[in-house]
Amino acid sequence: MDTKCEAGKWNVDAYLRGCASRTVLEALANKWTCLLIDALRHGPLRFGELRRKLDGITQKSLTQTLRVMERDGIVIRSVYPTIPPRVEYELSDLGRSVAGLMEGVKRWSEEHVDEILAAREAYDLRAQEEPRPVPVG
């Protein structure tokens, strides 16, 4: 059985090391990608609006993430011939197709943050009290 995985040529299976779908998972798993998709769900926004909305994102991270999303066909960048030029970002059809999922991930994170933080704290306390053996093999 050939393990090569390229969309349209072989069976796509993200569990396979060489599967191209892993690059898609990697891009979508990025916190800024998730938040940008959710932020753009309601319509186009300018760079500055996105930067203000995503508290803590650097200009460099925002630029890089938007470029990756544009390259992946998730975001459309529109430049308007005004002085100064106006640039807007909006979700493509592909981006809109994943927006509900990203909104769900964001909402789930917000709803369960207290439980996750409590579990982390309990784990860390247990780890301090009794070191865990390292699995072999």
Rank of each mutant, 00 (worst) to 15 (best):
K53A: 13
L40D: 02
V24M: 13
A39M: 05
R41F: 00
L40T: 05
S21T: 10
L35T: 04
L45H: 09
L35W: 02
L36W: 03
L45T: 03
L28S: 08
T23Q: 11
R22A: 07
L25M: 10
A39I: 06
T33S: 07
A20P: 00
R52C: 04
L28F: 06
H42P: 00
H42Y: 09
W32N: 03
V24R: 09
R46S: 13
F47I: 10
D38R: 12
N30Q: 13
T23Y: 14
R52L: 12
L45G: 03
S21L: 07
G48Q: 11
G43H: 08
R51S: 13
L35G: 03
H42A: 14
R51V: 02
R52I: 05
W32Y: 15
E49C: 01
T33H: 03
W32L: 13
R22N: 14
T23E: 14
K31I: 09
A27E: 11
W32A: 04
T23W: 11
H42G: 12
V24L: 15
G43S: 10
P44N: 10
L28Y: 02
D38H: 09
V24T: 15
F47C: 09
R41I: 05
L28D: 07
E49P: 01
C34G: 12
L36R: 02
A27P: 00
T33Q: 02
T33M: 03
E26M: 11
R51W: 07
A39D: 06
L50H: 03
L25I: 06
K31F: 09
T33R: 04
L35K: 13
A20Q: 12
G48S: 10
A39V: 06
R22S: 05
G43Y: 05
I37F: 03
R46I: 05
I37C: 05
I37D: 01
G43Q: 10
V24S: 12
G48R: 07
R22I: 09
R46L: 01
L50R: 01
L40K: 05
K31V: 13
E49G: 14
V24D: 07
L25N: 14
L40M: 07
T33L: 00
E49T: 11
G43D: 08
L45R: 14
R51K: 15
K31E: 14
L36C: 05
W32G: 00
W32P: 00
D38W: 03
A39H: 04
G43P: 11
S21W: 04
A29Q: 12
L50D: 02
G48V: 04
